[in-house]
Design a protein around this nucleic acid. Sequence first.
DNA 1: GTGAAAGCGCTAACAG
DNA 2: CTGTTAGCGCTTTCAC
Lengths: 339, 339
Amino acid sequence: MPVTLQDIAQELNVSIATVSRALRGMPGVAESTRKLVLKAAQERGYYPNLTAQQLQRQRTNTIGFIIPTFGPRFSDPFFSELLAGIGNAAAEAEFDLLVSTVAPGKDELPGYQHLVAGRRVDGLLVVRTRRQDQRIAYLLAEEFPFVAFGRTDQELNFPYVDVDGEQGLFQVMTHLIEQGHQRIAFINAPEELMFAQYRLAGYRQALAAHGLPYDDDLVRLGGLAETDGYQAGWELFCLGEQMPTAVCTSNDLMALGVMRAARECGLQVGGDIAIAGFDDIPLAQMAHPPLTSVHQPIYQIGRLICEKLLCLLRGEELTEPQTLLLPELVVRESTDYRV
Amino acid sequence: MPVTLQDIAQELNVSIATVSRALRGMPGVAESTRKLVLKAAQERGYYPNLTAQQLQRQRTNTIGFIIPTFGPRFSDPFFSELLAGIGNAAAEAEFDLLVSTVAPGKDELPGYQHLVAGRRVDGLLVVRTRRQDQRIAYLLAEEFPFVAFGRTDQELNFPYVDVDGEQGLFQVMTHLIEQGHQRIAFINAPEELMFAQYRLAGYRQALAAHGLPYDDDLVRLGGLAETDGYQAGWELFCLGEQMPTAVCTSNDLMALGVMRAARECGLQVGGDIAIAGFDDIPLAQMAHPPLTSVHQPIYQIGRLICEKLLCLLRGEELTEPQTLLLPELVVRESTDYRV
DNA sequence: GTGAAAGCGCTAACAG
DNA sequence: CTGTTAGCGCTTTCAC
């Protein structure tokens, strides 16, 4: 049985209120009494019942985070790094982190409602935003504190951190075009994801800027898994005359899939075909050949969205509610065998 | 302001107890009253205050999970898959999941104490067990419900799921030896990790079984990161005459590092040098060449430890408190270019 | 400086 | 069938 304030109060013949005050270093307790209380608490190993504290204070000191999962063998390494950033930032602020996973086919809104309506957490982190994002609309309507990683297509004002995907794709494309590529394919993420829009915009913009035509056949939609890239890669490499000489993708996992397809088609990556990804997950540099990618500081972003949320919860005004980070192109051998 | 039982009771002029009973489908409420209550609750969007429920019921319906992290760029993809399994199993049982991360240098025991003493969770999942595991000793002493992924070196009786690493390494080694390799290096994980012991045991056992000598120079200790494998790989490949013809490692990340080192040394993986990993993370099959590894059903293990814990929390007797899964060797090109 | 009392929102005995 | 009462363990007025 855990020891309560009651227990200590009884032992010392003081009131429970005094014990509470002493333990939390509140004023209005005689130094002598405080010492006694501290000693007793120490001896009996007192630790506050967090649930009781939460109920009373009406704050949980907890932030929530809902991760989309993809079933066995399809978890995104992206999230483990993001989680590390979030978790470490939360821990430093002495906040707990409540994580829910939402299984592949399932709707995610109920998960948010559970945490919000159940007052289970003080604030939420929303990742992988959609063009029309019901989660964000919901949180805004409830006036529930949250910070998103990513923007939306709606005219909504909310705090977020995002990486400028338009810029990112523009940079990759410029690099490829400068390498002499004229037919460059783009494997995008599902349309409903907001970042897919930005990256596509960057792709088109770069084509336009260099007077290259936009060819529908060269633009594909994939899920986000390696296998999606693999499949799209095969399709592209079977176009014969129409085959692209370079492929860029909306995430690294898909780029790795394209690489695999390329190898199976007997193409030398970096030589016969250039391939570039997005995210620059740790694996990108370990790939063979190392993968050109657009670096997103994922761990830092995790920290950043978490810290922003913590500010909100402290009642502070955010000095920069919306942060747009500039991505950085990392050129490796997959787009340039001379590197 | 969220609506409470009080609010509904007032609106309908019934007692708060009746509302509570009606909402939870308890017997002893007139059908007519129940209907009224349900309707009112629906209209006003009532959702129970979970914290209050927890305090009253003395159960949190939450399980805890503490993940070791490795700072920026070093998160282990292993954990995202485990987390997916745990999270989905918890969600199905309507349990929440409290995740803490522990930053690289930090001691992890305080994290456990926080969750246990603060009565923040009903049970815990412990991963990556150590030979002498203070966390397990602590939880056992506190009689706190938990299930571990992995065993310990201590004479302790506790519920766990583990994969037989001894068998696993024995299988890899047998495969390599059958390929004709005589000098096989082994890059192990830090000694304090229990699975490192088992895998080393399997390594030695296989050598013995085939009459091969144990050579200290061929056994290395690494962290668990790709760079550790890379470094150890370089060292091994600089041994000259003493160089091994095959390398196996305690996890895939390190094996990928060895591959990278091999390439830099001009060795053809699968031909000049055989390399095998352990875990069979999704990346293993995407590596170039695809990596031979010992498959651990990580997602399933996540589900399994979570389900075991849920059983415990339901007060059920575990039919199989300790599960030892047999690993399965997956041979790919990295150890056999003919595959 | 200390204690008594109220209450966070809910559940569960016990009466009626 | 329904209401009253008494907590869960803690914080926070408000008296003394």
